[in-house]
């Protein structure tokens, strides 16, 4: 389910123009520029809306992405490392985002910590390829996933705030 707020957020992310994957040596650098442009805009918008929640960066050829995402729950900030590879079939298929440290803690995850997206995501991506990019993946995939899973994991005690963890061990 894509809620109204998510739809509004996504509609503000600029769409991409270049239909090229990492195997397309000539056009991939252009696509990569567009990915960064869209991501920069999205992060700036999030900051302006006081809802800054992730950072991403890639290796030089843009095939491997790593970063952090965070979620504020009851005034505490929970931060997670995230990573994914750009599949050779990108942008026709979306990358599989992984949050490795949560692997094994929720059933809404495939092995290796890859997040399990809702059944609405694949059709949505297919309908909008190749104009959706990584910023859209964050907004429609990881964002909603964190919003559902993190509070649940916290309530079950499977995710503990780092400060609290330290206090508990002292």
């Amino acid at each position: 389910m894509t809620d109204e707020a998510t739809r509004r957020t996504v509609s503000q992310i600029p769409l991409l123009k270049t239909h090229a994957g990492p195997r397309d040596r000539a056009l991939w650098p252009q696509r990569l520029k567009e990915e960064y442009q869209a991501l920069i805009r999205f992060v700036e918008q999030n900051k302006a809306a006081d809802n800054d929640w992730f950072r991403l960066e890639s290796n030089a050829d843009g095939t491997r992405w790593t970063g952090t995402c965070w979620f504020i729950h009851e005034l505490l900030r929970y931060e997670f490392h995230l990573e994914f590879d750009i599949p050779v079939t990108y942008p026709d298929t979306a990358p599989e985002v992984a949050v490795p440290e949560l692997d094994g803690k929720t059933s809404k995850m495939y092995r290796g910590g890859k997040i399990c997206l809702t059944e609405h995501f694949a059709p949505l991506w297919a309908r909008n390829a190749p104009r959706f990019g990584l910023a859209h993946l964050m907004a429609l995939g990881l964002g909603p996933w964190l919003a559902v899973e993190v509070p649940d994991l916290i309530s079950k005690g499977l995710v503990v705030h780092k400060e609290r963890q330290r206090e508990a061990s002292e």
Binding site: L15, K33, Y36, V43, R55
Partner: peptide, 20 residues
């Protein structure tokens, strides 16, 4: 809306993203 044409290089954009 689509991404705009940019004068910035990929390296510039990567650096800008890191500085955010």
């Amino acid at each position: 809306e689509t991404v705009e044409e940019t004068e910035q290089s990929l390296e510039d954009l990567m650096a800008q993203m890191r500085k955010l």
